[in-house]
């Protein structure tokens, strides 16, 4: 019997890719609040209202994801038939946005749920499939919508209540990216798959803190597995920790001997202006999708940044588990990109 050789697995949680699996194209579609933020120029399409002439917020979210997928395909000069697998996920129950989008695209579909970590989870799985020779082109997509997420996770959109001041604003928008081996773009160099980390946080408004523990754990293990330190990267980018979670992440890693502060930032901090009343910043799948696939992808293509570590973070609770007083399990996946 032949023993299984796992040559590309490095350390406990990471894999190192040998082939040039590249992000061939990316596309972003942004909602109204996001289009008024500091990164508005980086989005491919911006909408001025939340419902974009659809009958429900869920349909509007699906519309945005479909649009992002077609835009990304168009930029890569590919049609849905050229894509081997479509990997997508979102925040809604039964990941309906991704599934309904896949219904339209008619590409063999793998639905994933990683909450706000969906982008890096999708990139990781997609890159490994291409690396393994199972696919030539992969489309990865994710989306979130403030109103559809609010009604599912919190309260109806018009319900009046006071947020505690440290909560985050679920971003509205969608992003899609095409992975492949023939073309130009940042290549997926290595991946660190995160473990579930539970910091014992029970407050569903304090997600930044809950997710920071997961982000710090994944970044720490990434450095450990690949024998790197923060200076290896031009930028380390967490998904949606917001201002408070970002600070906690820095503090945890500083306690472990890694000073990430000089080249570290968070998508949740970058998406909005402070005066947009978003408290601690952005959250949701769209936060990392819009900021990374919109802003930083362009910077990498322009070779302003050569090495980036994307660590999208997700809080994997449900409204039911929160009401049942369970603490919030979180995850973060790191994807190292180089150009």
């Amino acid at each position: 019997m032949q023993t299984l050789r796992v040559e590309r697995k490095i350390g406990r949680q990471s894999v190192l890719l040998e082939k040039d699996v590249m992000l061939l194209s990316s596309a972003t579609v942004a909602g109204p609040k996001e289009s008024l933020g500091p990164l508005s120029a980086d989005f491919d399409r911006s909408y001025k209202d939340n419902i974009i002439k659809e009958k429900s917020f869920e349909k509007a979210e699906c519309h945005m994801l479909e649009e992002a997928c077609y835009l990304a395909l168009g930029k890569a000069r590919l049609s849905p038939e050229d894509i081997d697998f479509f990997i997508a996920g979102d925040l809604l129950n039964q990941i309906v946005t991704a599934t309904f989008c896949a219904r339209k695209l008619a590409i063999p579909y793998l639905g994933i749920y990683g909450a706000c970590s969906t982008l890096s989870e999708g990139l990781s799985l997609g890159a490994m499939l291409v690396e393994g020779g199972f696919a030539k082109h992969i489309l990865v997509g994710t989306s979130s919508h403030n109103c559809s997420a609010e009604r599912q996770f919190r309260y109806p959109t018009e319900y009046g209540y006071q947020k505690p001041g440290y909560s985050q604003w679920t971003a509205t928008g969608a992003g899609a990216v095409v992975l492949g081996t023939n073309g130009q773009g940042p290549r997926v160099e290595s991946i660190t798959v995160g473990k579930i980390v539970d910091a014992g946080v029970k407050d569903p408004f304090a997600l930044g803190v809950a997710m920071a523990a997961a982000a710090a754990d994944t970044i720490y293990n990434h450095f450990l597995d690949l024998e790197r330190d923060p200076t290896y990267y031009n930028i380390i980018l967490t998904g949606d920790l917001g201002g408070i979670g970002k600070k906690l992440n820095e503090d945890i890693l500083a306690g472990k001997g890694y000073d990430i502060q000089p080249n570290y930032t968070d998508c949740g901090v970058l998406l909005y202006y402070p005066h947009q009343k978003v408290d601690a910043g952005a959250s949701g799948c769209a936060a990392s999708a819009l900021v990374f696939l919109g802003h930083f992808y362009r910077k990498m293509m322009a070779k302003e940044l050569r090495k980036a570590l994307l660590v999208a973070t997700g809080a994997l609770h449900s409204p039911t588990t929160v009401l049942q007083q369970e603490s919030i399990p979180c995850i973060a996946h790191a994807v190292s990109l180089e150009i």
Binding site: Q162, P164, G165, Y166, A199, G200, V201, A206, V209, A213, I244, K247, L248, D251, I252, G255
Partner: peptide, 13 residues
């Protein structure tokens, strides 16, 4: 450690 951090550095309503 995180609970402690929250108590010291987390903003309160």
């Amino acid at each position: 450690w995180i609970n402690n951090w929250q108590r010291l550095k987390h903003p309160k309503p």
